[in-house]
Simulated assay, not measured.
Amino acid sequence: MKYTTLRDTYKILTFAMGLGLTYPNPKTEKRRVVCILISLLTIMPVSLMIFWDIYKCWLRRDILNIIRHCTIIGPFLGGFAKMLIMHLKRSAGKQIIDEIDRDYAMYNHLPPAYKAIVNTSIQKSLIYCERYWGITVLTCVTIFPLMATVLNIYNFLFKSEPEKYMIHDLNNPFAAPEDRFNSPYFELMFAYMMYCCFFYVINYLGYDGFFGLCINHACLKMDLYCKAFEDALKEKNENAIYEKIVGVIKEQNRLFEYVDLIQESFNKWLGMILIATMIQICNCMYHITEGFEFDVRYIIFIIGSVVHIYLPCRYSTKLKHESVETSTRLYCSGWEHTTSPRVRSTVLYMVARCQRPSEITAFNMLVFDMDLFVSILQTSYSMYTLLRS
C-alpha cells in the first residue's frame, strides 16, 4: 500500500505532537492528562520566577526588562495552552486524523493521474509543514542556548575574567542580582532552561505544522473531486455520468464537514496567536531598538514571530482561494456537452455551493487571510510607536 496513515506519512510532525501531548489518541487519553499536569508542574518554578522578576521590574519602572521577559514567557506558556486546547478539542482532532487516514486508504485504488495529484500534495506538505517549519522553529528557539553556550566557551577559553551568559537572563529571587552567576545556581538554571527550550520546540513544531497539513489536505480533496467531476462528464452513458457525479457530491459534502472540523479544532488557537503575535512583534521591535545593544537573537525571534502568523494566514487564504476556484473548474469541466437535464441541474447546484468560500476564522469572527496578516503588522507597528512615545 503506497499511502498508509498520517502517522506513517508525517513521522516527524506526529512524533512532535506525541511528545508535545497534542496528538488526540483515545488510548493514551488518561496518560496524556497526567503528563500535561506533570509538565505544567515542572515549568511552574521558572514561570513564577519570571513573573516575580517582572513585578520587581515594574516597581522600579524597568520597561525594557519587562518586555524582555514577556517576549519569552508569553509564547512559552502559549505552547502549554495548545495542550489544553487540543485536549478539549480531542474529538474533532481525532476525526480529522481519521478522515485523512480514510482518504489515504482510498487513494491506493485511484488511477495514476489522481495519484500524481496526491503525490504532489503530500510532497508539498512534507516540505513546508514539516521540514521548513521545523527549521524555522529550531532556529528561533535554539539560537538562545546556542549563543549562550558559544559565548561561555569563548570567554572561559580566551578571557582571564570570563563573563557568564544565561540562556535567558533571570535573577535569583532569593539572592542579590549578581549572585545569579554563582555555582550551582547558574549551572542548574542553564540545564533547566535547556529543558524549557525542548518544550518550546515540540509545542510549536507539531501543533502548528498540523494546522498547515490539515489545510493542504482540504485543498487536495478539492483537486481530486474536481478531477473526478471532469472524468465523470466524459462517460458515454447518462446513468454512469449521474452515478459518478453523485460520488463527487458525497466527497464535496465530506470536504465541508472536514473544514468544519478544522474550524472547530483551531479557531480558539488562531484567536490566541492573533492577539499574542501583535504583542510579540511589538515587544521584539521595542527590545531591538531600545535595548542596550544589538541582539541577533531577537532579530531572529521577530522573524519567527512574523512567519508564525504568516503561515496560518497563507494557508487559510489558500483554502479560501481553492474553494472559490472550484466553482470555476466545475463550470469549465465540459458540462455543456451533456444533454441530461438532471446532470445539468446537479452541476448548477454544485457550482452555486462552491461560490460560497470555505473560510477559517479566529474566535468564529475574524477571517484569517492575507488582509488580516497585513492588518496585524500594521497594528503591531502602531503599538510599537505608541510604546516608544
Score class of each variant (00 low, 15 high):
V296W: 06
I273K: 06
T289M: 15
M278L: 13
I300R: 08
N237Q: 15
R297Q: 11
E293M: 12
K236P: 03
K236V: 06
I275W: 00
Q263V: 00
L261N: 02
Y286W: 03
D295P: 04
E235I: 14
D231A: 15
L261M: 05
I300H: 09
C284D: 15
N283V: 00
R297M: 08
E290T: 10
N237G: 09
I275Q: 01
K244V: 08
C284P: 08
M285A: 13
I273L: 07
S265H: 04
A228E: 10
N283Y: 07
K234G: 02
G247S: 14
K268Y: 07
L255C: 06
M278I: 09
R297H: 09
G271P: 00
A232I: 08
V259H: 03
Y286S: 04
E251N: 12
N253P: 01
K236L: 06
V248T: 08
E257K: 14
F292Q: 13
A276N: 09
I249K: 14
D295Q: 11
R297W: 01
I279M: 02
N237T: 11
Y286P: 02
I299K: 00
C284Y: 12
Q263F: 00
K250A: 15
K250N: 13
I262H: 02
K268F: 09
N237P: 07
N239A: 14
E264A: 00
I300T: 13
N267A: 06
E257M: 08
E251Q: 12
V246H: 11
I275D: 08
R297I: 05
V296F: 05
N239E: 13
E251I: 01
E235P: 07
F294I: 09
I249P: 11
Y242K: 10
N267T: 05
E230Q: 14
L255E: 06
M272R: 03
N239V: 14
K227E: 12
I288A: 10
L233N: 05
Y286I: 03
E243M: 10
A276Q: 10
E257C: 03
Y286D: 00
I245A: 09
F266E: 04
Y286M: 07
K250P: 04
K234Q: 02
G291K: 07
F266W: 15
E230C: 10
I262V: 01
G247N: 15
I299R: 01
Y286C: 06
